[in-house]
Design a protein around this nucleic acid. Structure first.
Lengths: 205, 205
DNA sequence: CGGCGGGTCATCCGATCGGTGGACCCAGGT
DNA sequence: ACCTGGGTCCACCGATCGGATGACCCGCCG
């Protein structure tokens, strides 16, 4: 059940960095790399990967163009995650319009990268603008606060908001506040996904 | 962050079996074993483990007695999980009364065993009567069907029932049916807890 | 001192969930 | 031939969730 993916970026250094981060996790396997959009298309044909990590600015055929070409095909389509340097990059929107399943900042940590890949493969759009924003504004912004982890843990144990509130000695309203905040940080929209992301990132178990 | 534990059972074969299952996981380390309650007490003194896996029927000093003696001490107390053959064993209740943190069936799978150990160390009481019941009623009753796993995975990815239905090409009603069933099997009442249990047992990630 | 982040609480509302009770079909085992 | 288990589907309902918004308090930092 390893995720087979290809890395597309015109900078070998970046490709190596990404590969290094991913290869350390045995749930992910890098099965190829390409230096521009056209190479990417051929590579996808050849390797039939589960997912493509694609840079936007590339010679010959840029990311958006490559994504469009990949999407316009029939047959099995790999998931596509865009690699960007800044989330202010407005090409991102064009990429998402073209059919990307989400985007990643090159400054992502290994754990974030792996989590994003795993999520994308399961059909989730990863790294919402807010989450990416949080990653950029970094410091430890994407880190959950102690209280948020408390809430998350209690939710994972199957408590309703009300029960969690009683357990943590706060009101249900407070629990909900913590939840919406941690949803934003984790890039999810519901408790089940939050629990999953928490496990993927090692925040719990 | 490995869990240091000792195995207490009067049958060397059982001890070996347990050890074998646990040693395969690098989050767990078996730091000692004992053949009866008194040996166990000395062993705990010597090794200061995080957790004790304790059989009940043993010569010299039985499990309940040993648990009682362990609990009546000051200082750092290891977690204690009782090992039983049947969950109908009524000594279980005495053991829990004496201070055990949960109990395990010797028929547990490796994944269940590891999950239980990890949970217990985190302060959770593991294997509720219902869960154990499910394990005993076995056959493969506690096993999720392929379809249920599909649903669970999609739910973990953050999908609503409707979205999951679309993804799996079935109706929302079907998704709900699978959910209620897998809730029953996992001993939970909502999707968030289901995702957690799935991770704890290694069904997902 | 003023701002900011973390924690707390509240209200409103539509969307979704979980529970219940059936129902049908098909494959495999008895 | 019968039955069981897995998969699929339906309807109805109260409970709960998630989203949006606004507010107060406290401690830390510049």
């Amino acid at each position: 059940m390893t995720v087979r993916l290809v890395v597309v970026d015109d900078h070998p250094v970046v490709r190596d960095g990404i590969k290094g981060m991913l290869q350390a996790d045995d749930r992910v396997e890098v099965v190829g790399e390409a230096g521009d959009g056209l190479e990417a298309l051929a590579l996808v044909d050849r390797t039939d990967p589960d997912l493509v990590l694609m840079d936007l600015r590339m010679p010959v055929l840029d990311g958006v163009g490559a994504i469009r070409r990949l999407r316009s095909r029939g047959g099995a389509r790999p998931r596509i995650l865009v690699l960007t340097t800044y989330d202010t990059d407005r090409d991102i929107h064009a990429a998402v319009d073209a059919g990307a399943d989400g985007y990643l900042l090159k400054a992502s940590t290994r754990a974030e990268l792996v989590a994003a890949v795993l999520q994308a493969v399961q059909g989730r759009t990863v790294l919402s603008p807010e989450a990416a924003q949080a990653l950029v504004t970094r410091g430890r912004v994407e880190q959950l606060t102690e209280r948020e982890v408390d809430v998350l843990r209690a939710i994972a144990a199957g408590g309703t908001n009300r029960q969690v509130g009683r357990q943590l000695l706060v009101s249900e309203a407070t629990v909900k506040t913590h939840l919406v905040r941690l949803y934003g940080k984790l890039g999810v929209r519901d408790r089940a996904a939050a629990v999953r992301v928490a496990y993927e990132r090692g925040l719990l178990g």
